[in-house]
Write a protein that binds this DNA or RNA. Sequence first.
DNA 1: AGTTGTCGTTGCAGCATGTGCAACACCCAT
DNA 2: ATGGGTGTTGCACATGCTGCAACGACAACT
Lengths: 252, 252
Amino acid sequence: MSQTVDRALSILPLLAQGPADLGQVAERLGVHKSTALRLLRTLHEHGLVFRQGDQRYRLGARLFALAQEAVENLDVREIAHPHLVELNEQCGHTVHLAVYEENEVLYIDKVESRYPVRMYSRIGKPVAITVAAVAKLLLADLPEPERRVVADKLDYPMYTSRSTPNAVAFLRELAVVREQGWATDLGGHEESINCVGAPIRGADGRAVAAMSVSAPNVVVTREELLTLLPLVRRTADTISREYSGTTRPKKA
Amino acid sequence: MSQTVDRALSILPLLAQGPADLGQVAERLGVHKSTALRLLRTLHEHGLVFRQGDQRYRLGARLFALAQEAVENLDVREIAHPHLVELNEQCGHTVHLAVYEENEVLYIDKVESRYPVRMYSRIGKPVAITVAAVAKLLLADLPEPERRVVADKLDYPMYTSRSTPNAVAFLRELAVVREQGWATDLGGHEESINCVGAPIRGADGRAVAAMSVSAPNVVVTREELLTLLPLVRRTADTISREYSGTTRPKKA
DNA sequence: AGTTGTCGTTGCAGCATGTGCAACACCCAT
DNA sequence: ATGGGTGTTGCACATGCTGCAACGACAACT
């Protein structure tokens, strides 16, 4: 790995937390001001960083443009979206779409109760990987050795008393999910929130994404939410079919 | 500027066009394969890039997460404030900043007029949503269905004879505002007060806030106030650019 | 099977490149 | 004026980046 690039890229998450001036950047990077300045300049020339009125640095528009392209290239999202909306119209609850990437599970789409999605709402956040239904689905689909390696590396925070406590329990849960082809999160992340989810599979049978429906206890009980399972699975299967039918990654 | 970082960052827009393998990246960068490899590795460790199918490289979803986090930590008010003050120094009148939230439009910042006669308003208070210039701007930017739903739910109090009388008239007014990109309130709230306003837009083109200049008849006539329109729009555009982190405005 | 081509990966020697220092320029408060 | 706080510049040094060439893995042909 390249030290210079490593330092430069470390600036990005730093600025994502909020604007910072040259001194702060240099200090938090552990380098001299002049070094930080040159890194920032380079980032600036590529538009990833922006200087606002009072000399402070912020993430720039180019980064947003790149982020846009990054998700647009995930064509699962395009295909799935209308189906997520439809599902939302039928049940009224929040619908999520997530993918697995590099030891993380990220939400890439979301439909909130009755209103159309707004870009940049809360999509893009990593999910609570040890408890979320979509995370279980995606991890359960990994090849066995990788699954175990990932499970070992994870932390197992006890969000609630129902959270997955450790790797052993997690792997056991994944085996169940793998077997039954769907997953739940019953108060494992927040005590009052339940989810049911199902995988979206590509032509080769592997899970390319996962979707879930979430609702708080006060709206529907666990049992009522579980009655939506067939609908969720049917939607996921529909998306799977459309995805594997239209996706033809030519040039082999 | 730093050569190494410069090269590394050049990879991103390159990958934005589509996945590429090591050889292609090296060639298009004009560097040796081993160099490209090390750059890609570094990008990979930061999650900006990932390898699909253990072969080709593509943009990583972490880019998306980064942009997301940055947007959440963005504070329109902080960015706008100095510009509002500057505008106030140039024209002397009251300047307002407002956002739309949950069927309401709220003032979130205000710079008081230098003239003795001031208008009543308070930061944090909902504005007269059917007549205020800022409210028209923000509602005009909503997606069509939501706009209509909101317009139907509103009350249309006749503050003055010039107030918007009903939903039909309001929607017509919003269409005009949407078209022209600015809005006025000519005695619709208080007989003697006029306003002109313009929207502040984020990187995705949606209005994140709106600003206006207000003055009573006794200080400036409507016609005189309207001559400030270019200045108001220019200020709003400047704030928009700074908020979205770009130097060049997108197309309207 | 053997062979040839392609592609990703590695270790290394040389030197381009990034680094930190110190001095400078600037702005604002005192 | 004076001082402390910024961001910025030029420069000598050596760090860490570069390109080379060789290796291993894999697949496609003959």
